[in-house]
């Protein structure tokens, strides 16, 4: 499983993008997905610096490939509006944080992340995410979405 209920944050109060990335990375760290949290965050922020991972429609998918990632993971947060330097200028309130081991390019979980990226372009999918109330509901929804995990 890429995601579990310990990797879900439904009411983040983070004020900016780094704070939110840190909150989610901490969840992943506590869940044993990352060995060195600072190293991982550095990889994610470096990626953000290239260009924003906000994709518009209030969604961002920060991600980093790093040796500190033990297991590939997906963490989810719903937050208050955060400025994420989005291409459409909209603030972000839905965030998927993705962690992939550096040496692990080309395997199945990347395929899943590709599927997730495609789904995020659909309005229905985003609306459903915004209406989700509990982590169980989220996991159930993601399972039903045929992302392949």
């Amino acid at each position: 499983m890429l995601i579990n209920e310990r990797l879900v944050l439904l009411n983040s109060k983070a004020k900016n993008r780094e704070e939110l990335i840190r909150e989610l990375a901490l969840l992943a760290y506590k869940d044993g997905k990352i060995s060195d949290i600072e190293d991982y965050i550095k990889a994610v922020l470096k990626r953000e610096a290239e260009y924003s991972t906000a994709v518009g429609f209030g969604v961002a998918i920060p991600h980093g490939k790093s040796d500190s990632v033990i297991d590939p993971f997906l963490a989810f947060a719903k937050s208050e509006d955060i400025d994420w330097d989005a291409p459409d200028q909209n603030p972000v309130d839905i965030v998927f944080l993705i962690g992939v081991p550096e040496k692990d390019a080309g395997s199945l979980h990347l395929k899943i992340l590709a599927n997730l990226s495609r789904k995020l372009m659909k309005e229905d999918f985003r609306n459903s995410l915004r209406n989700i109330k509990t982590s169980a509901e989220l996991l159930d929804f993601l399972n039903k979405s045929e992302l392949g995990f």
Partner: peptide
């Protein structure tokens, strides 16, 4: 895209739609 994790596929989806 440079990391090839997400935006490659989002762009593909957007164009297909």
């Amino acid at each position: 895209c440079p990391t090839g994790i997400a935006h490659t596929y989002m762009a593909a989806e957007a164009l297909e739609e």
